[in-house]
Design a protein around this nucleic acid. Structure first.
Lengths: 201, 201, 201, 201
DNA sequence: AATGAATGAGTATTCATTCAT
DNA sequence: GATGAATGAATACTCATTCAT
C-alpha cells in the first residue's frame, strides 16, 4: 500500500461534490433536458471517463443531486420547525430561505423531471415522491401550531402545507432566467395568504 | 380542376389540428423530453415526412401547441371575467376549469420547458412569457372586483393574481401520473386562501 | 399513396439482403469480435442510421445471419437426405458442400459466438442450439441408412452424426485466413473415418 | 538490504501465474469477447495498474495464456507418445485428458480468436499456428505406431492427426456452457472412428 | 512494487430533418 | 400532398492504457 487510504477517501469525497455541484450549476444554466455528460465533464473539469468512475450513469448523478437537495431541504425544514418561534415566522423563514437560494429552481425542475420522465426508474420516482411527502410533515406541524396560535387560517393542515409548498415551487419555476414575468414575488405577500389576522382589518 | 382551394384549406386545417391534438396527447403520455417526431407521426397517423409539410420543425409544433393552449386559456379567462358573477365564483370557475381539464399539466410542462430550454428561440420564450403576462390581466381584474366586494383579501391585485396562477400551476405539476402525493387538491381549498370572509369565523 | 407498395417491399427485401450479405462478408474478413456497425455500414454502402431502419440492433443482424445460415444449411441437408443415393455419397455431398463454401467458417464462428457471449439473449442461444440439434436429424437418418447398407461403421447414429458435424466445424475453423496449418483437408479423408468397408482391407 | 533478488523473482513468478490463472478462469466464465482488464484485476486481486507492471498489454496476457496452454499440451502429448503403451491407449489418454479438463474450451476459443482477430499481431497468429502444427507431430507418430500395430485405420498419418485434433476441438466448442446439444460425447466413441479392428465385427 | 484515479478514443444507438418517388 | 427510406450529427457509456502518489 503506497497510498494513503484516508486521503484517498477525502479526495474522492471532494470529487463527488465537485461533480455534483458543477452538474447542478449546468442544469441551472442550460436546463435539465439539454445537459449532456460532456457538459458536466467540462463544467467540473473532470474527464468524461472519470465521471463514470464516480457515478454509474447520468441518471445516477441526477438522482444524487436530488437526494442531497431534498435531504438538505428536509433538514432545514425540520430544524426550522424545532425553533422557538411563532408559526408564521417559521414559515417566513422557510419561504425566504427557499426563494432566496439560487439554484432552487434547478432542484424544483429536477424533482418534476424525475417524477415525469419515462426513463427514470420507478424506484427513483417513488423515492422522490416519498421524500417530498416526508418533507411535508414539519410544515404540517408548523401549520397546526399556527392554527392553535390563531394566526393561520383554518383548514386541513396537510392540505394547507401542500398548497404552501406547491405555491413556492410554482413561483420558483416562474423565476427561471429569461422568464421575467413583471409581477412581484415577496415573502410577506405569500405569507399573507395564510395569515388569519390580516383578514379582520 | 377537380380540387377546390377552399376544400384544401379545410383539409389543411383538419390535418393541423389532428397533428397538434395527437402531439399533445403523446406529450401528456410520455413526457415532453421523450417525444420524438416519430411518436407524433404514429399517434396522428400522418407520415413523418408529411408532418414537415405542415410544420417547419418539431419546435414549431411545440410552439404552436403552446400558442393555442395559452390563447384558448386567455379567451376562457376573459370570458369568465365578463360574466355577471361574484369574483369568488369567477375564480372558482377558472380554478376548477384548469384543474379538471386533462392534459393541462402537459401544457404547464410545455410552458416551463419552452421558457427554459437553451435550444428554444428567444422569440419563443418571450412570446410565451408575454402571453402568460397578458393572461394575468383578467385575473387581476377579477381580484380587484373581489376586493371591492370585500370577499377577497387585500394586497396588490397583480401580485395576488400571480400567486393564484402559480399555485394552480404548481398543483398541476404535482398531478403528474405516478406522483401520488397523499394530500388533497380541492377547488374550495384553493379559494379559501383568497377568501376574506373565512378569516373572521 | 404516391408510392408503390409492392416495389417498396421488394426494395426493402433487397436492402435487407444487401446488409446481411455484406455483414457476413465483413465478419469473414475481420472476425466477429471486431466488427462494428460502422464497418457494416461502410461495407454495405448503407448509412449507419439507415441500418437501424432495418434492424433493431447489431445483435439482431447477427441473429438474422445465423438464422438464415442455419436454415439454408438445414434445407440443404434435408434435400440431400431425400436423394436416391447411397448414404456415403450423401455424406460426401454434405461434407464437400460445407467445406467448399466460402464464408462457412464465418457462420461457424457466429454459431459459437452466439452460444457463448454473455450479452446475447438466452433466447438467441437456445434457438441456435435448437436449430443445430434439428439439423442433426437428417444426418442421423443418413447414418442409419448407411448402417443398413453396411457401409458406415456401427454405433449410436446420433452420436456419429454429432461427431461428423463437429469434425466438419472443427476443420472449418482451422481454415481461417492466416492459419495455414500444413495438413490436408480432403472430403474422402473425412469420409474414410466413417467408412466400414475400408477397415477390412 | 532486507530484500533479496531471488525472493523477488519467486514472488514475480507467483504473481504472473496468479494473473494468468485467474484471467483464464474469467475467460472461461464470461467469454473472451467480454473480458476486460478490470475483470482480470478483480479476479486476480491485483490492481489494474499493477497488471501493467507484469504485462505490456491485454493482448500479451492472452498471448501468454495461449503460449503456456499450448506448451503444456505439447508436453503432455510428447510424454504420452513416449509411454510404453499401444497407440490406441495413448490416443485415448490424450482424448480423455483434453475432454475432461475444465477450461479447455476457453483455450480452444483463445486459439481461434487469436488466429482470427485483425487486432492480434501477425506474429501472434503465426506463433499460435506454428505451435499447433508442432503439437501435431507426436500425435502423427502415435498414429504411425497404430498403423504398424494394425489397430488404426489407413491413411496419411498427419491428415488423420489433424482430423483427430480438429474433432476434439470441435467437440470442445460444443461443450460451451448453455449449449446443451442432446448428444453424447464419449472417449470410446471418438476412438471408434480411428479403430481399425472395430470395422471387422 | 502497488494502487486506483484519470484520460480519451471508440462504440452502439437515437432522432430531427431531407429526399426520391 | 403523401410516404417512409436515407442521412449524419449527437449522445451515453466503455475500456485499454497511463500517471501521480
Amino acid at each position: 500500500m503506497a497510498r494513503n487510504a484516508e486521503k484517498d477517501q477525502i479526495s474522492r469525497e471532494k470529487r463527488l461534490n465537485q461533480i455534483l455541484d458543477c452538474a447542478l450549476e449546468v442544469i441551472a444554466l442550460k436546463g435539465i433536458g439539454s445537459v449532456s455528460i460532456n457538459d458536466i465533464a467540462v463544467a467540473s473539469k473532470v474527464s468524461v471517463g472519470n465521471i463514470y468512475h464516480y457515478f454509474k450513469s447520468k441518471d445516477e448523478i441526477f438522482d444524487e443531486i436530488l437526494r442531497r437537495g431534498q435531504t438538505a431541504y428536509g433538514q432545514f425544514v425540520s430544524e426550522t420547525e424545532a425553533l422557538e418561534l411563532p408559526a408564521l415566522d417559521k414559515l417566513s423563514l422557510i419561504c425566504s430561505g427557499w426563494l432566496s437560494t439560487r439554484n432552487h429552481w434547478a432542484h424544483t425542475l429536477l424533482i418534476h423531471s424525475a417524477r415525469l420522465s419515462e426513463t427514470s426508474l420507478p424506484s427513483t420516482r417513488s423515492q422522490v415522491t416519498e421524500r417530498f411527502t416526508r418533507n411535508l410533515v414539519p410544515i404540517t406541524n408548523i401549520i397546526k401550531q399556527g392554527q392553535k396560535e390563531e394566526t393561520i387560517i383554518d383548514g386541513d393542515p396537510l392540505e394547507l402545507a401542500f398548497y404552501f409548498v406547491s405555491l413556492i415551487q410554482g413561483l420558483t419555476l416562474q423565476r427561471m432566467p429569461g422568464a421575467e414575468v413583471p409581477a412581484p414575488i415577496r415573502v410577506e405577500g405569500v405569507m399573507h395568504l395564510l395569515d388569519k389576522r390580516k383578514r379582520m382589518d
